[in-house]
Amino acid sequence: MLALWIGMAVLAAVFALFALWAWRLAPQFAQAQQRFEQEDNTTAANVRIFYTRLAELEQQRDDQTLSAQQFDEARLDLERSLLSDSTAAHKQALAGPYQGSLWWSLAIVAAVVLAVVAYLNTGSSSNVELYGVRQSIEQSGDTSPAHYIERFEAEAKRHPGNADVWALLYPLYRDSGRYQDAVGALSKVITLRDAEHDPALLAELAQAKFFASGRVMNSDIAATLNEVKRLDPRQPTMHSLLGFTDFTRGNYQGAIDHWRLALAGQSNNADETTLRQGIALARQRLAQAGANGSPDSPSNGNLR
């Protein structure tokens, strides 16, 4: 985070130097422009052109190629043209080189202040710090899950309203077997992101609750799964969990049906492999049960 503020300060300083450089050179440019306008001989050139053209008209009149009336009309047009060119060539006096500099300086300061305030209110300074934590962990040489959890937990205490830090903690808790902590982290992600109706996150939450309860299906988990069913009947994580519960209850056909639905919506190669292996094992158990004349138990995975 310190590097970010240093970078912003350096950019502001560079911008200020360019502004001061232009402000310092303003008198030189003003003098150069004034000299140019003083030495401008556009009006004199227009007068010379006027007299040259007038001499041509007089010569045409003397040669009788122009009538007196045509000569007067042409001379009037020529005089009007000279008057128009002289009016256009008149330039407004230059303003002082420092005129308006105070307002521009105030505008620049206000823009910098507004940018900082806007970033503090709507920016992601906490995520910048989170990125710095990840970088420091990778550079420390200790990239164990415990080290990540320790550092991210410290960030969660500092920024409890940052959903991203809880989203990073959730898989670390889950993969470390800390399922109750995983449930808490994912619940915070759902609350902070206003994702109470996100079927994917709710299915993940139900799965975390299932493992936190010692792989026992209870009413709370069932209610969460029913909400997922309502939002997305083909949600793969939900069907993966229901297939697992059916398998453990001996309902191998129900497990196969759920895992096939989970496989259809799965995009992770490792999870696809696990599901295919589970389906193959369920079919093997189903065939063994049929050979022994013992039908599989009725499905208990269809929650109501």
Rank of each mutant, 00 (worst) to 15 (best):
R151A: 11
W104C: 09
T248G: 07
S176Y: 13
Y131V: 14
Q277T: 14
A93W: 04
P233V: 08
L172T: 04
N269G: 15
S86P: 05
R283Y: 07
D232A: 06
A182H: 01
L120S: 12
I149T: 07
E129S: 15
Q28G: 06
L242H: 00
A182V: 03
E129G: 11
D62V: 12
L25Q: 15
R304Y: 07
I149M: 03
N268H: 15
T248K: 03
Y173C: 00
Q277Y: 01
K188G: 10
W21L: 14
A19Y: 01
L78W: 00
E227K: 07
Q64R: 14
V189S: 02
L172A: 06
L231G: 08
E73I: 13
H147C: 07
D142S: 15
D257M: 04
G123P: 09
F247H: 01
S176E: 06
F15C: 15
L263C: 08
M238L: 05
Q253L: 02
F15I: 14
A280K: 13
G177C: 07
H197V: 15
N300C: 09
G214I: 10
V47H: 03
M8V: 10
W103A: 10
A45L: 04
A280S: 13
E153M: 11
A12S: 13
G100P: 09
L54Y: 14
L202C: 05
A200P: 15
F71D: 01
G7K: 02
F211E: 15
A146N: 05
L231M: 11
G214R: 12
F244W: 09
A115C: 05
Q59Y: 13
W166S: 01
N162Q: 05
Y131Q: 06
N162I: 02
I149Y: 04
D194E: 08
A223S: 13
E153A: 03
Q60T: 10
G184F: 02
L82Y: 07
I221D: 08
